[in-house]
C-alpha cells in the first residue's frame, strides 16, 4: 500500500549528489545520491550502522559532509529520534520557545497552526511530562514543522510508540505529505517503510543499495518463492553481501 499523499507528488524538493562522510577513519556514507519530490514520502531503511541517521544529520545541517552536494530550495525541518522537548515546559511554551529560536516571523500564528495540526490545542497548557509518548512525539514533530519547511526529516519517528500511537502518528505524517511537505524518514519498522513510503532508499555500510518502490525491491530479489516485504528485504541484503 502506498501513502495517501501520492497525488501530491510533483517537482523536486531535494537533490543529493555523491554525499560522503567519515567518522574516525570509518566511511559512514559513500557517495550517496538521491532526490525527492514535493509531497513525497521517502523511507530510508537499512541494517544498524548503515548510515541512516548520519544521512539525516547531514541533510539537517547538523553535520557537514566530507564531499558531495545537497540542494534544497526551501526550509528543512528536523525531528530527532528522541523527543527534544523540555518536560517541565508546557506544549505551548515549547512551541513558542523553538519558534523564537528558529526566528519564525509570526510566532503566535505558527504556534496556533501547530496546535491545530497536532490536535493538541486542548492540552496546550499541559507540561510535556504529563503527555503520552505519542503526544510527545507529535509535539516533537510539530517543532520540526514550525518554520513551515519544504522538507521534513524524521529520524525513527515511531520508535517507542505503541501500535495505536503509531497509527495516529502516521495519519498525521500522511496529512503533512498530502499538504505538499516532502517527508524523509528512517525506520526499523519495515512495514512502515512499505506501507507509507512512496519510495525506499536502502543503505548498507554507508552505500546506497536501492532506490525505488517496495514492489521494485520485491522484484529485485532473485531468490524464488513468495515472501513478505521483510523477507524480501533480508534476501535483498543477503544477495548483496550484507
Amino acid at each position: 500500500m502506498q501513502g495517501s499523499a501520492e497525488g501530491a507528488v510533483s517537482q523536486s524538493a531535494i537533490e543529493v549528489r555523491d554525499l560522503s562522510h567519515s567518522f574516525d577513519g570509518r566511511r559512514a556514507l559513500r557517495e550517496v545520491s538521491f532526490e525527492a519530490r514535493s509531497g513525497e514520502l521517502l523511507a530510508v531503511i537499512g541494517p544498524n550502522g548503515a548510515g541512516k541517521t548520519t544521512l539525516l544529520s547531514i541533510l539537517a545541517g547538523i553535520r557537514k559532509p566530507d564531499s558531495g552536494s545537497i540542494s534544497i530550495p526551501g526550509e528543512v525541518g528536523w525531528v530527532p529520534q528522541q523527543a527534544a522537548l523540555y518536560r517541565r515546559l508546557t506544549v505551548d511554551e515549547n512551541l513558542r520557545l523553538f519558534a523564537r529560536l528558529e526566528a519564525v516571523g509570526d510566532v503566535d500564528g505558527a504556534v496556533e497552526r501547530m496546535l491545530e495540526q497536532t490536535g493538541l490545542a486542548d492540552r496546550r497548557d499541559d507540561q510535556i511530562s504529563t503527555l503520552s509518548g505519542g503526544n510527545q512525539q507529535r509535539v516533537n514533530i510539530a517543532i520540526g514543522l514550525l518554520s513551515a519547511p519544504a522538507v521534513l526529516l524524521l529520524d525513527e519517528p515511531s520508535s517507542g510508540l505503541d501500535p495505536r500511537q503509531r497509527e495516529r502518528l502516521w495519519e498525521f505524517v500522511l496529512g503533512l505529505a498530502g499538504g505538499g511537505t516532502t517527508v524523509i524518514y528512517t525506520t526499523h519498522h519495515l512495514v512502515e517503510a512499505e506501507r507509507y513510503g512512496n519510495r525506499l532508499l536502502v543503505l548498507a555500510d554507508g552505500e546506497r543499495l536501492f532506490d525505488g518502490t517496495s514492489a521494485e525491491l520485491h522484484a529485485a530479489v532473485s531468490e524464488q518463492g513468495s515472501r513478505d516485504f521483510e523477507a524480501a528485504f533480508v534476501a535483498f541484503l543477503r544477495e548483496r553481501g550484507h
Binding site: A60, G61, I62, W78, P80, Q82, A83, A84, L85, Y86, R87, F98, L101, E102, A103, I143
Partner: peptide, 13 residues
C-alpha cells in the same frame, strides 16, 4: 539529557 542541545544549536543559537 532533554535531547534539546542539537535542536537548539541547529537554530539561531
Amino acid at each position: 539529557e532533554e535531547n534539546a542541545f542539537t535542536r537548539i544549536t541547529r537554530g539561531s543559537v
